[in-house]
């Protein structure tokens, strides 16, 4: 019995480690793009993996499906958290961008984070995660057409923000 429990734990540990190593950073970035907070983003990653262990969905060995499911869950959890916390400031950002090169890039992050949530999430998933608009629509539970238009409007808005605030072309 003790042996079985030990085996079960180690299987779970392996599973968790595999998920974390494969998708951990993507999940963390997605959560961070919503919450701008390290502790909250980390908690979202943890809760997302917890949901995976609870529901144990069958992806038939399809890594894209698995990642899609995790991203969808992380996005939903982040949005729920954001609504309950009511949007925090980028308190952790300075610590995240510690180096000089990183600090140079901070303004891009700031510009993206000034966008409304619906533009921010599609820009993040499209440019950072490399998802197609169809996949983003699936992850966010929206129509592909609205994802496309949000992406286009988000790009325009980002251009405006960068021009106005950072004088960047």
């Amino acid at each position: 019995m003790a042996y079985n429990r030990c085996m079960a734990l180690s299987v779970r540990e392996l599973h968790v480690r595999r998920i974390l190593n494969t998708y951990g950073d993507s999940l963390y970035r997605l959560a961070f793009s919503y919450l701008h907070n390290d502790a909250d983003a980390q908690e979202i990653v943890q809760d997302t993996i917890l949901q995976l262990l609870r529901y144990d969905p069958d992806f038939h060995g399809d890594g894209m499906k698995e990642k899609g499911w995790l991203m969808k869950t992380a996005a939903n959890l982040s949005r729920n958290r954001l609504r309950s916390l009511n949007a925090r400031d980028e308190t952790e950002l300075d610590e995240t961008f510690a180096g000089s090169e990183e600090k140079d890039l901070k303004f891009v992050w700031n510009a993206v984070n000034q966008l409304p949530e619906k533009y921010r999430e599609v820009i993040h998933l499209f440019y950072q995660e490399g998802y197609s608009t169809k996949e983003i629509a699936d992850i966010l539970g929206r129509k592909e057409g609205s994802v496309r238009s949000d992406l286009s409007r988000g790009r325009d808005a980002l251009r405006t923000v960068l021009k106005e605030v950072y004088d960047f072309e």
Binding site: D25, R29, L50, K106
Partner: peptide, 27 residues
């Protein structure tokens, strides 16, 4: 600009300590 966004995102990642903490919590 969006390439810079991708680059900026590279600095946002889970540290090994954070990963260990998540694993420990989940176990």
């Amino acid at each position: 600009t969006l390439n810079k966004y991708q680059k900026a995102n590279e600095f946002i990642r889970l540290s090994e300590d954070q990963k260990e903490s998540i694993v420990a919590n989940l176990l």
